[in-house]
Amino acid sequence: MTLFWRIFLLNAAVLLAATALLLLGPVTVSTPVLLTEALILFCGLVAMLVANAALLRLGLAPLERLTRAMTTTDLLRPGPRPAVSGHREIAALISTYNTMLDRLEAERAASSARALSAQEAERRRIAQELHDEVGQTLTAVLLETTRVADRAPGPLREDLLRAREATRDSLDEIRRIARRLRPGVLEELGLTSALKALTSEFSMGGGPVVRHRLDPGLPPLGPEAELVLYRVAQEGLTNVMRHAAAERADVVLGSVPGGVELLIRDDGRGLVDAAEGAGLRGMRERALLIGAEVAVGPGPEGRGTEVRLYVPLVGGAGGEAADGAGGGTVDGGERA
């Protein structure tokens, strides 16, 4: 039973008891009770109950709004704070809750920034080791296999050539993994070239055809915003490959009023009833760190899935928004 009904029923019980004593007790307006007197008392009781209910409803409405806000709050989807209203104690409670929510969002943003920064540093380290250690070793094996195959007799030569091709395929796969872990093209050639290379890589992976439409006249973006855009595109295409069962996917990047928008759309089976996975949560965490917003929903005509990332331009550059969204640096995150 809610607080409203407990208080209301308690007051109603008191008023009913008082009315019963007035009607049945020795002290009354008249004895026996006249019909008109009973009607007057009954109407007065109803009026008191209605007035009491209205006053309680008005007084407890701020608490009900606060309860709804508490049950729907999601730190990955910041929303408006409940308005501070009501009497002194209720207003103080709402104000304290808003302050606590601000602190929790700031602490989560800071901790997420540290975690994502550590993950990206680990990505760079692993990519470097794959390139320097494993890649160089496989390259040496490839050269030695080629040298030995040139001098080997016929049957053995065929086996060595097959081993050479397997080694070459493994080397290509190692390089591909290293590029995904550390997008060097993003640092060297910029966001547009990196997204073109990313879509080409996914198109050649044997899955759906990936098309891109990238605006060449984007406003200047900071390195953090570019990294978030790249990682969200990478995550979105990875989810398309793994889960969508799609035939085609589109990556669209362009300017919109007040910012830049990235759209990843596919024609697959669309959203399912499964809970949101780590991939989408990672997208939201990255977006929050630069003040961006991620929206996931069905595609046109209810077919497929759309992922939209809106990056607002603050101070003329998308990367500057990070200072107001938790103060952390964005350096990567988990994949789905």
Rank of each mutant, 00 (worst) to 15 (best):
G277W: 06
A275H: 10
A278H: 11
G277N: 15
V260L: 10
R269T: 12
G277Q: 10
E261I: 02
E261M: 11
G270S: 07
A275T: 04
D267I: 03
L262Y: 14
V252I: 14
S255W: 00
A275D: 13
G254K: 08
E276P: 01
V256N: 01
E261Y: 03
G254H: 11
G258L: 09
A274I: 00
V260G: 14
A274G: 11
V272W: 00
E261D: 08
V251D: 08
G259C: 09
I264P: 01
A278D: 13
L271M: 15
R265A: 15
L263N: 02
G258D: 04
G270E: 11
R265K: 04
E276G: 04
S255H: 05
D273V: 09
V272E: 13
S255P: 03
G254R: 13
G268V: 04
D266G: 07
A275I: 06
D250A: 05
V252L: 12
A278K: 09
V272A: 07
V251L: 12
V260C: 08
G279W: 12
A275S: 13
I264Q: 05
V251M: 05
L262R: 06
E276V: 14
D267N: 15
D266S: 11
P257W: 05
V251A: 01
R269D: 02
D266W: 08
I264G: 02
V256Q: 08
L271Q: 14
L263R: 15
R265V: 07
P257T: 05
G254Y: 05
D267V: 10
G270V: 06
E276A: 08
G259R: 05
A274F: 00
L271G: 09
L253N: 06
D267G: 01
